[in-house]
Nucleic acid binder design. Sequence first.
DNA 1: GGCACATGGTCAACCATGTTGTCGATTCTA
DNA 2: TAGAATCGACAACATGGTTGACCATGTGCC
Lengths: 179, 179
Amino acid sequence: MVDHVPEENVNQVVDNGKGESGPEGGGRGYELPLLLFGGFRTLIDRLHARLATEGHPDLRPSHGFAMQAVGARGATASEIGRRLGVSKQAAGKTVDRLLALGYAERADDPADARRKLVHLTPRGYEALARSAAIFDELRAEWAAALGADRVRDLEAALRNVVPAETAFRLDATSWLGAP
Amino acid sequence: MVDHVPEENVNQVVDNGKGESGPEGGGRGYELPLLLFGGFRTLIDRLHARLATEGHPDLRPSHGFAMQAVGARGATASEIGRRLGVSKQAAGKTVDRLLALGYAERADDPADARRKLVHLTPRGYEALARSAAIFDELRAEWAAALGADRVRDLEAALRNVVPAETAFRLDATSWLGAP
DNA sequence: GGCACATGGTCAACCATGTTGTCGATTCTA
DNA sequence: TAGAATCGACAACATGGTTGACCATGTGCC
């Protein structure tokens, strides 16, 4: 889609004057989020490239997050919304999407006539299982490239610095653009 | 926005059976992308919380990416689109929003009547300069919490494992949802 | 000089994903 | 039992993407 990387690096518009030997000397501060996002996107892109070749070409990153929010025991749209950090209406639309793709089903809850329980189809479970396996493989690749201890330390460092509630919130899609 | 964290952790739908002592023993593979994204989001959220208190409450993460793509010397909508990895039409819409927010301006290029050069306003430069300074501060906080060497190693590790072209591509918004 | 082609900007239609607000139905609870 | 809370749905709208079409302009080449 993009066929070049511009020669004038777009990330050097603002130089804070501290140069290479800034506060820590190991990189300017703005690189940190880009590296983290780059790592995340690298993993997610490779996951979905693999999934696409394994019978799940229509699965998007957001669908994976949504299926995780559905969970093994199923959930209502409202619950899914809370887990993803979005409104129940938005969650309902996402569920519609999963239904259309064949990854989830909706059924009345016999115990509560208001609720409609969303649960994964076998195809949905299969996609999640494949995702887990592929993530393990990708992590092993990182361990081979970096050393297992460095990957462990990277994870440990991030766990220290990412608030626990933030670490596993799954609202990946929304927060970027919305007001 | 979200008022709880569900007790049943939503990320354990699929357990690959390897348990705690999986391929590397330091964490299941699916945690890695979540931690990376969590770190990224933590930084970006805190950046924009700070920016909001400093006169830029309407600035969104995507606007920051877009302003980086505009660059110090200005750019056309087509160039911005290439840098962000989106179509020129999408870039044009983004530029419209930057104009409306007062962060950029559009001017005819005297040397080429087709082109309309987008450049940052003083307010746009100021926002980028503040962002750079805040990122430096946030990185310093991580260094204080983790140790400067661990932050450096984290950056070095990610640089090793993230393709160079990927590291500084700025198309944050699009890839998540689009087909 | 002139023509073919590439490039830049814009318009229109559409999609996916969010947001509020409202509403009826149902369940919980004081 | 009456009022409050919850669930799902619908509608209207914003945002940020996509294609496709179109016109104006610049460029390269015969």
